[in-house]
């Protein structure tokens, strides 16, 4: 019974969303608002129930230690400083302090993480000797393609003065580089299309299952 009702609601909502293919209509808007509202409401509930309330209850119920009191007091102070940002903006300068702490710490964490987790590993992997020190022709070909594509793509963005006409070789290089960029975007588009088609297939499968279930009842 639950599968029948739940599947029916899902099928109706899916049809309402798919009706957008025929044009914008109230049914599509209704489904859109419903989905967005439910998602936001759930997110708010999760944030409240799993982030705010436990911390507050922990501070109230238990006898906190000195470090906990320090952390809670600092957080409370930063929260109080953030309050003037709302309303009439009186004394909102004080709100810059918690925002600066937030963005400063966030930027520092992101920067360190990007350097350690993305830039350095990818750079080292790009110039790794294993890409050349191999007998596998496919790996060697891949390394050559990688190097050429990176160099040509970067050269295609070469800055030049206005009115400075590039040579024919430079134009060919730029065209090749831009072609590579377009091919990359084409890959991204194809990947996105695959994802959307998969979502469509999954929804059609779910609707087909529901209609099949519905057909078994009659």
């Amino acid at each position: 019974m639950g599968a029948l009702v739940g599947g029916g609601i899902a099928t109706v909502l899916s049809l309402m969303v798919l009706s957008r293919a025929l044009g914008d209509n109230p049914l599509y808007r209704l489904a859109q608002y419903l989905l967005v509202g439910v998602a936001l409401g759930y997110a708010a509930a999760v944030l409240t129930g799993q982030t705010l309330v436990p911390a507050i209850m922990q501070a109230i119920d238990t006898s906190p230690s000195v470090p906990t009191i320090t952390i809670i007091a600092t957080a409370g102070l930063l929260f109080v400083l953030l309050i003037p940002r709302f309303g009439r903006q009186r004394g909102s300068t004080w709100a810059n302090i918690p925002l600066a702490v937030l963005f400063g710490v966030g930027a520092a964490v992101a920067l360190v993480g990007a350097a350690r987790g993305t830039l350095v590993p990818q750079l080292l992997d790009t110039i790794a000797t294993r890409r050349i020190d191999t007998v596998d022709p496919a790996t060697i070909a891949g390394t050559v393609v990688l190097i050429v594509a990176v160099v040509v793509t970067l050269l295609s963005f070469t800055y030049r003065q206005r009115g400075d006409r590039p040579t024919s070789g430079a134009r060919l290089l730029r065209s090749f580089g831009r072609g590579l960029v377009l091919a990359t975007f084409g890959v991204f588009l194809a990947a996105a299309v695959t994802t959307y088609l998969t979502a469509l297939v999954a929804q059609l499968q779910a609707m087909a299952d529901w209609f099949t279930l519905l057909g078994t009842l009659f």
Partner: peptide, 11 residues
């Protein structure tokens, strides 16, 4: 997802 697979390829 297949959509972000090319972008996560370096990792």
């Amino acid at each position: 997802t297949a959509e972000i697979a090319p972008q996560t390829q370096p990792y």
